[in-house]
């Protein structure tokens, strides 16, 4: 219950910080805007690419816009780095909570707030754009979205935990963000890639943070193997992140002042 309260007040906290809210809300739409015109040009020459028609790709970029905003945890390592250097992390470490879950639910509340406009945009698209989404897909999509959130958060939590060892972690954070952007299906569906590369990338964890939940919602289908890999990465990353955090925390020296 206390963790749900953390998510609730974090949601409220994010909505009240109006400037942050507006900036964080606008940013994903600018990418979406570019994607739209890029794909419009591509599909003016081809009717179908990688199993997608133009209307399907529009639905894809809107859904991916929502998912990537919702699961985003890329700023978490920076927050860890800053609070470790300034010493403000100490005020959170003295609370009687599991730090992983404390940050998980804080991030969940925040991401919910920042994704609100995407939910609205997707609903508008659904009503006006004639995009058909089956109820069964939505029912599978919701748990996959939360699993994707857990997986992505856990990966960045591991990166954030490295602050106890290296203090400065901006470099490694950017590498992970870059890999996530490239192999997560945020810019285009991974089915656009040659099969060999596709086969490799879809076994990496990033593909399950955005591309896989989007495919579920858009009815692209999934196999038993996909589910097993998805669950494997999510559990592995979650347990690893908790263990790595606790292990590295014991060796910490600083916390600024």
């Amino acid at each position: 219950m206390k963790y749900l309260n953390i998510a609730f007040y974090s949601f409220k906290d994010s909505l009240i910080s109006l400037s942050d809210f507006i900036i964080m809300s606008i940013r994903p739409f600018t990418i979406l805007f570019i994607q739209f015109f890029l794909f419009k040009y591509v599909f003016s020459h081809e009717r179908e690419v990688g199993g997608y028609t133009f209307s399907m790709i529009v639905a894809y970029i809107f859904v991916v816009g929502f998912i990537s905003t919702f699961v985003d945890a890329g700023s978490f390592p920076y927050k860890m780095e800053s609070s470790y250097i300034k010493g403000t992390i100490t005020t959170e470490l003295v609370l009687p909570v599991d730090y992983y879950f404390f940050e998980y639910f804080k991030n969940l509340g925040q991401r919910l707030a920042f994704s609100l406009q995407f939910i609205i945009a997707n609903l508008i698209l659904y009503i006006l754009g004639g995009i058909k989404v089956k109820l069964i897909n939505v029912l599978f999509f919701i748990p996959s979205l939360f699993l994707a959130f857990t997986l992505n958060f856990s990966m960045y939590f591991i990166v954030g935990s490295l602050v106890f060892r290296f203090v400065k972690i901006a470099g490694i954070t950017e590498v992970v963000r870059f890999l996530g952007g490239l192999t997560g299906g945020r810019l285009f569906p991974l089915s656009f890639l040659p099969e060999v590369i596709q086969g490799f990338i879809t076994r990496l964890p990033f593909a399950y943070t955005v591309y896989f939940p989007a495919n579920i919602l858009l009815g692209k289908g999934f196999t038993k193997e996909d589910i097993i890999i998805f669950l494997f990465w999510t559990f592995l990353m979650t347990f690893s992140s908790i263990l790595i955090f606790e292990r590295l925390r014991e060796t910490a020296e600083g916390y600024g002042g």
Binding site: K12, D13, G87, T88, T91, V94, L95
Partner: peptide, 9 residues
């Protein structure tokens, strides 16, 4: 000079 309270609510 450090706080455990949320600042925006």
């Amino acid at each position: 000079n450090k706080t455990k309270l949320m600042e925006n609510i």
